[in-house]
Design a protein around this nucleic acid. Structure first.
Lengths: 256, 256
DNA sequence: CGCCGTTTTGATAGTTATCAAATATGGTGG
DNA sequence: CCACCATATTTGATAACTATCAAAACGGCG
């Protein structure tokens, strides 16, 4: 696993109030307002971020132990492998998400977290060690939301059709990115997943994923191209996917 | 939600070393040995257990806030509902499992935990408040295993066929029950799920679940009857389901 | 320009869902 | 002990959805 240091400041996000360098702070302050005096010291972790190329294994069987980290930029996938080669992406890890610390043998041999794109990752020790009540509360809410994403994933795979799954996932991705200010405008985001990777999230074959995405395009619900996805008709997508929660969008989103 | 007090001692389990009244202690000590002097005071929580009839909603939209509790006996289901009535059971809650505390509005409106059988539930405050390092460690491992069950559930639904899902779930259920000594002998356990409920776990229709179970019986891999399931050919089931982990059976199971 | 990974297409098989009804099963009251 | 009810399991026929296989178009890049 190769990693190179990277020079601090990564993404001076547009004109939103306190533009932290750490996406995780943008995410947490979106959940619970956090004092600047508390947040700024934590934000300095950004200066110690490292860069990893795409396809890097971030944690897995024979990886060294890792402290807790957070994603500055890039997407990763938490995968489970079946012994015949089938792969299921259990959850996607986006900017602002926390990669838990791993002990060397804590990780089942069939579980890996791999970088889907080039990534920049910062240590999360200062954040997780904070005893500030707002931070603690925000972390608790964040954990609850992450659990919610997982429950949603179970429900998607267990009870929804291909088009429902796809619509719902795209909405979730948009909303999760919006929480850290990593969208492009009110309805578009950088979507680095290949259809094959998308299939491993959705529990479908590549071919079927392709046809499903085409259907969504044909019905003018989304637009795709140049590595971007545009949510054209959010209402229709939300209806198709029976999309509401994602951990509590309505309740938790003070920005916008 | 009706609840009645119940007189202490619930299940003097067979002849295993420290036969705690709280299944959660049996589970935790199976993960990390815990001193009796530490465990016994916690075990007293068993005397404050309450009984709930089947179908009780244990937590959900308009339920009162609840402190953390653990299951003494009975099975519950954590469900997600789609607005058209489809239901997915995200995870099953078995004896020894912990029901997290809930704040009144912390629970999404489409999420409920409901008793599948009559249940006996004890408060978990003393357990969760413990600062004993062994207990803390055991709770951490337990949390990791529960996460593992959830990842397994995602993988089952996303990438496995009906027969694979069914085989894997039955093995998981056996192993989880074995951890708290709630099995009947080396290969049998009380299996209170109707095929309809089972379907909502497996993401299948009732009819298809029925045919799948029949196939497992026909091939002499399991036996069922009188609310029991018997794992007849564990090796074959494990092979079909690509079953290994479940959070680390091999690593964590000192009893037997 | 040509290579390689990704997306797209077509034809077909396989798995799972749907619908409707028959057959157990377990518990209850007479 | 038996008839009867409600619930659960089972069966059959058919439709719908998703997978599979193979190959053709794209698209970016050295």
């Amino acid at each position: 696993m190769r990693a190179t240091r990277v020079m601090a400041s990564v993404s001076p996000i547009s004109g939103r109030a306190p533009a932290f360098d750490l996406p995780v702070l943008r995410r947490l302050t979106a959940l619970v307002p956090i004092d600047l005096t508390v947040a700024m010291p934590i934000d300095r972790a950004a200066t110690q971020s490292k860069r990893y190329p795409a396809r890097t294994t971030l944690s897995g069987e024979r990886q060294p132990a890792q402290p807790a980290r957070t994603i500055m930029s890039g997407w990763a996938a938490h995968c489970r492998l079946l012994s015949d080669g089938r792969r299921q992406i259990v959850r996607l890890l986006l900017p602002g998400d926390i990669l838990p610390a791993t002990a060397p043998d804590n990780v089942p041999s069939d579980e890996t977290v791999m970088a889907l794109t080039e990534m920049v990752i910062a240590p999360a020790a200062a954040l997780l060690a904070s005893v500030d009540p707002q931070v603690v509360r925000a972390l608790r809410i964040d954990a609850a939301m992450q659990r919610g994403y997982l429950y949603t994933q179970v429900t998607r795979l267990g009870r929804q059709s291909a088009i429902e799954r796809t619509a719902g996932l795209l909405l979730e991705l948009y909303d999760r990115l919006a929480l850290v200010g990593a969208t492009e405008g009110p309805d578009r985001f950088v979507m680095p997943l290949t259809q094959e990777t998308l299939s491993d999230v959705l529990g479908l074959t590549t071919v079927h994923t392709n046809r499903t995405v085409q259907q969504l395009r044909r019905e003018r619900l989304i637009e795709t191209g140049r590595g971007r996805t545009r949510i054209v008709d959010r209402a229709a997508l939300a209806q198709i996917a029976d999309y509401r929660r994602t951990g509590g969008r309505e309740a938790y989103r003070p920005m916008l």
